[in-house]
């Protein structure tokens, strides 16, 4: 076969171009740490890579959602514990008031009770970020518009004073402006988790039942059976004592309800924490799978670069020698 200068140079150029391109590819892989420089480098891996990336993003979304939900559970739990503690204090206060030695101090107990009611309302108005945790889905200040003239705040629970009646001589009343719809977040594929604790689960029907009891107890302490304010040293009647005992029982039940709600939050928190940890492990595992497909095997790439460099060097040497020699070099 005849070998010509053109065929030699063309082949040499082609070889040098290919080797240069391969070296450039390996250098880019080492420099960027990415195995795939273009989609066609590994077409069979592209679907897996997209899938892993998508899964990681989804898991991170759930993880982030769980982060927020767990923070809200913490706030809710603190509020519920505060409410439960205050209700226990009210129980203690009621039991103390039943003591004969304290029968002449019901006015004082009334004031203590009122401050406890206000404390419970304050805890019930606990907010997480810009939402009120016990207000259902109507949980922002903007959505909690007060109805004038009695209501004045843009909070879900408000103690207002209405016209006194024989049944409610103080006229006190707790208004709930939120709703009892639960809020859910997606924490997994096809899996949602309730993040809110509704007011009816804490305070009974309508979210105000327990306050009715507390105000009834207050009215018993602060007002005589005829509806007039209790005078200093005025002793309770037997019927009033019976009522107080009944109210204490109802408050004890309410405390149990609040504790149950707190327990539910705790259980939910545990479940979410476990799920959060599971997701974190999944993310790590998926990242590892992704890394195997997308990241450069530096050792292999370095060795390949070395081989390409040697081939390039020898191609240059051989090419230079072959192109330099012809019969003309030996003609005198």
């Amino acid at each position: 076969m005849r070998v010509t200068l053109q065929s030699l140079t063309t082949r040499l150029q082609s070889t040098l171009t290919d080797l240069s391109a391969r070296q450039a590819q390996q250098q880019t892989r080492i420099a960027t740490g990415q195995r795939l420089l273009q989609l066609s480098d590994a077409p069979s891996d592209i679907a897996d890579i997209t899938s892993y990336r998508s899964t990681i993003a989804r898991l991170q979304r759930y993880s982030s959602t769980l982060d927020g939900a767990l923070a809200e559970q913490g706030t809710t739990e603190t509020a519920l514990e505060s409410i439960a503690t205050t209700l226990s204090n009210v129980q203690t206060l009621g039991i103390d008031a039943q003591q004969i030695a304290n029968h002449d101090k019901w006015n004082v107990f009334a004031q203590h009770l009122l401050s406890n009611i206000r404390a419970i309302i304050e805890a019930a108005n606990t907010s997480h970020g810009d939402i009120y945790v016990l207000a259902g889905t109507k949980n922002t200040a903007a959505s909690l518009q007060p109805t004038a003239p009695l209501e004045t705040t843009q909070m879900p629970f408000e103690l207002v004073t209405t016209s006194p009646t024989p049944a409610n001589p103080s006229g006190l009343e707790v208004r709930f402006k939120g709703n009892t719809e639960a809020r859910f977040v997606q924490t997994g594929d096809g899996h949602t988790e309730q993040v809110s604790t509704t007011a009816d689960k804490v305070f009974g029907s309508g979210g105000t039942e327990v306050f009715t009891t507390l105000i009834a107890l207050y009215n018993t302490f602060a007002y005589a059976p005829d509806g007039t304010p209790r005078s200093d040293g005025q002793l309770p009647t037997a019927e009033e004592l019976d009522r107080v005992a009944a109210y204490i029982k109802q408050i004890a039940d309410a405390t149990t309800t609040v504790n149950q709600a707190t327990a539910e939050v705790g259980i939910r928190t545990d479940r979410m924490t476990a799920q959060h940890e599971q997701i974190a492990e999944d993310i790590t595992r998926q990242r590892e799978f992704l890394s195997r497909l997308t990241d450069t095997d530096v050792a292999a790439a370095t060795m390949q670069l070395q081989r390409d460099q040697i081939a390039y060097e020898y191609s240059l040497k051989i090419g230079a020698r072959m192109l330099n020699l012809s019969l003309f070099d030996f003609l005198q």
Partner: peptide, 17 residues
């Protein structure tokens, strides 16, 4: 797309924010 759905998910957890 991932960031869009992330943001939607975050908003779903705090729709009033």
């Amino acid at each position: 797309m991932q960031q869009f759905f992330d943001a939607a998910s975050q908003l779903a957890a705090n729709p009033s924010r």
